[in-house]
């Protein structure tokens, strides 16, 4: 349920209730409008939009957002809660990213073809055979080092639009490429730096929340590194580079990492 739905649904709901609403005194109408707003808060979409979709009402959404924010803060390892937080608060921002994708030929192609990133579609074994220094080779090296696979991502549950759910999924699936591209480590401060970078690029509130609250959990050293080095880098590169959601990563594997960085306008993050 995003903001855009509320008004038009109210119109229709009101029409059904009061076909003869012109006769109503304005105060009564106002009252009904308020009631209906409350009613629409409790209304969930009628059917499942995609496998894994959990339709929820705006009220539930609010509760879930607040709850997951606290849980995520207390325990950043609860990946499901971090994900739920992003999904429940992201409607408007997902739309913005989708619109940014619609304005770009590559972004449109991604939305049309909806490529998915799994260990199967990525053919990781083939990537391992690429020469050192190519984007694909460095990407598998990263996965191997971290002992993660593209298949370990949390699926999307709470986004009430089939297309936006895909955008969210794509956003998650491409996260590992960002590490390869920027050279940021998988440490708490490295992740937070990446969130800052994404926030500048996309304005997703999940990244916004974690970029503001995340630092609370850092040691003095980590915090210093974050604000002296990472954040300035993120602010500069996040705004200068091409929107990474419009990158068809799967087609860049053969290119050297430096070339990919140059073409996308991203400078590698200073190593510490």
């Amino acid at each position: 349920m995003s903001f855009r739905i509320i008004p038009s649904r109210n119109i229709n709901a009101l029409r059904q209730l009061h076909p003869n609403r012109n006769r109503l005194a304005p105060c009564a109408t106002l009252f009904t409008a308020t009631l209906l707003t409350a009613k629409s808060l409790l209304e969930a979409p009628t059917s499942k939009l995609y496998p894994g979709h959990v339709p929820i009402s705006p009220l539930q959404r609010g509760i879930l957002a607040v709850g997951s924010a606290f849980t995520a803060l207390a325990n950043p390892l609860r990946g499901d809660m971090v994900a739920a937080l992003g999904e429940t608060t992201g409607g408007m921002f997902l739309e913005r990213i989708r619109d940014q994708m619609l304005l770009d030929p590559e972004g449109r192609r991604i939305l049309r073809e909806r490529p998915v990133i799994t260990s199967e579609t990525m053919q990781l074994d083939k990537l391992r055979e690429l020469p050192d220094g190519t984007f694909g080779r460095e990407y598998v090296r990263f996965l191997d080092d971290q002992q993660v696979s593209p298949d370990t991502r949390e699926p999307v549950h709470f986004v009430d639009s089939e297309e936006l759910a895909y955008v969210m999924q794509r956003y998650r699936e491409t996260h590992d490429f960002y590490h390869t591209l920027t050279g940021l480590p998988v440490t708490v401060d490295g992740e937070i730096a990446l969130k800052w970078f994404e926030m500048v690029q996309t304005g997703l509130p999940m990244t916004m929340l974690s970029s503001f609250f995340g630092p609370l959990r850092l040691s003095h050293e980590e915090r210093k590194r974050l604000f002296d080095i990472y954040v300035p880098w993120a602010l500069e590169n996040g705004s200068n580079s091409k929107l990474l959601m419009n990158v068809r990563w799967e087609e860049w594997f053969e290119k050297p990492v430096e070339q990919v960085q140059r073409e996308l306008g991203v400078q590698p993050c200073p190593q510490v």
Partner: peptide
């Protein structure tokens, strides 16, 4: 711009539902 769109939509919807004002 999001907040403006949201506010104007609520306003438009409210007016649409109030016969007398619309008149």
């Amino acid at each position: 711009f999001g907040p403006v769109v949201w506010a104007r939509s609520l306003g438009l919807t409210a007016v649409d539902n109030m016969g007398p004002i619309k008149t």
